[in-house]
Design a protein around this nucleic acid. Structure first.
Lengths: 233, 233
DNA sequence: ACCTGAACACCGTTCAAGT
DNA sequence: ACCTGAACACCGTTCAAGT
């Protein structure tokens, strides 16, 4: 009970939301989102699991906070969600902004999936989308077309296209040949495609797709289509 | 030990994979994918949880089987994944097929999410994508462009666009007005869009988006873009 | 061949209690 | 103000044992 003011035993920094969210992101980055448990999170912070509930309502609140933190990384990367820089072509500006967001999201590949499960959208997140909408408006879009545009872009507006097939490089190599065998009759077109790829680039297998290239291809296809609709209307 | 051959006590039908997958789908349809647990699944089948493991390796295998079952619903709905009906415009054929798949997927909204977590792709699933690829090829696409096309379509090729924001109709109505208030300065473009919508259709609020309309808008935008690239090349 | 009881190592969360 | 122990109601899964 005596004052032990200046003992150097453990800094004794109390927990706070910031530190909780940071630790959560670090865990998810390292082991995937399914490795993020309240117990593991507490452990990383040198604390018992129950202590987390003093700072945070529940796990959902952790996920909300984590998404908000990721969005502020995006904000930092884009240099703020300011009003659109006028004068510059909307298509170039939007493309640039989305690719910047992508650079952040690639550091947290689990984030889009979590994003989609959110029921509350933070102010920061809304400001991101408001800024995108602003780029479209200032680029000459009607609200109606801009609204459609946001829907078409979907998760692509965050720089992330959910890949339907995550290429698993393990199997791809080992039985690619055996697969091509039975593909030839049952899956003629996939077989044909693979054979052409194999011909053009003998070293490649099923895992040949380049995510960044495909992302940009899809993004440009959509942006071009939108520009066409904009000028037509 | 005496033969009680014809006692009418409980039909005593042994479990099998088919019944397990069917029950799993029913549970997910009713309560969402997170309500699908091995224990609940067993209960639905009038059996102990451990009994499932006699018929199925683990929960992952259940999910694999469930996706395969959904894909066979798609197959039935499209009348088989046959070689493309030649002569008919690729764009119309592909659009039709995807919208048919969508009708099935809307009955199992959780399915796309599960699909994305699969590491093994079933033969039936591959045949679906082979058929889509076939439609493109027969429509005059190079393998290279067709491959890009599959990437752009992504989960849309299954009839499902992952909605970034699931409109929650609860909050939308109650504090839409209050929200517009502070939106006006911090979220100028979103506010402007809402105000225009409110003006055009006074009864509507944030939950005004029509998923089917937006899906078809996006699909057509992409298909048109692909056709343009096809003829240009 | 098919099913089960008991058990294990995990979850998220509550609540009364400690400092 | 901040943290914890003990406990609860859940998970998926194994394994030896029952019929």
């Amino acid at each position: 009970m005596v004052s032990e003011t200046e003992t150097t035993t453990q800094p004794r920094i109390p927990l706070n939301k910031e530190r909780v969210f940071r630790a959560a992101i670090a865990i998810a980055d390292e082991g995937g989102i399914e490795s993020l448990t309240m117990r593991r999170l507490a452990e990383h912070l040198g604390v018992e699991a129950m202590s987390l509930y003093y700072h945070v309502d529940n796990k959902e609140a952790v996920l909300d906070g984590v998404i908000d933190a990721v969005m502020s990384e995006v904000e930092e990367a884009t240099g703020g969600f300011d009003p659109p820089t006028d004068g510059v072509d909307w298509q170039i500006a939007l493309r640039e902004r989305i690719l910047t967001a992508r650079r952040v999201m690639l550091r947290h590949p689990w984030a889009v999936g979590v994003f989609e499960t959110r029921t509350e959208i933070s102010m920061l997140t809304m400001r991101y989308f408001d800024a995108l909408l602003g780029l479209l408006r200032e680029g000459g879009f009607s609200y109606d077309l801009a609204h459609h545009a946001m829907h078409v872009l979907g998760s692509r507006s965050l720089g992330f296209a959910q890949e339907l097939f995550s290429d698993n490089p393990d199997d791809a190599d080992e039985d690619a040949a055996a697969m091509l065998e039975q593909m030839a009759d049952k899956l003629p077109y996939l077989a044909g495609m693979m054979m052409e790829v194999a011909h053009d680039d003998p070293d490649s297998t099923l895992g040949w797709c380049d995510d960044q290239t495909e992302f940009e291809f899809g993004l440009d296809l959509i942006l071009d289509g939108l520009e066409r609709l904009r000028t037509k209307a």
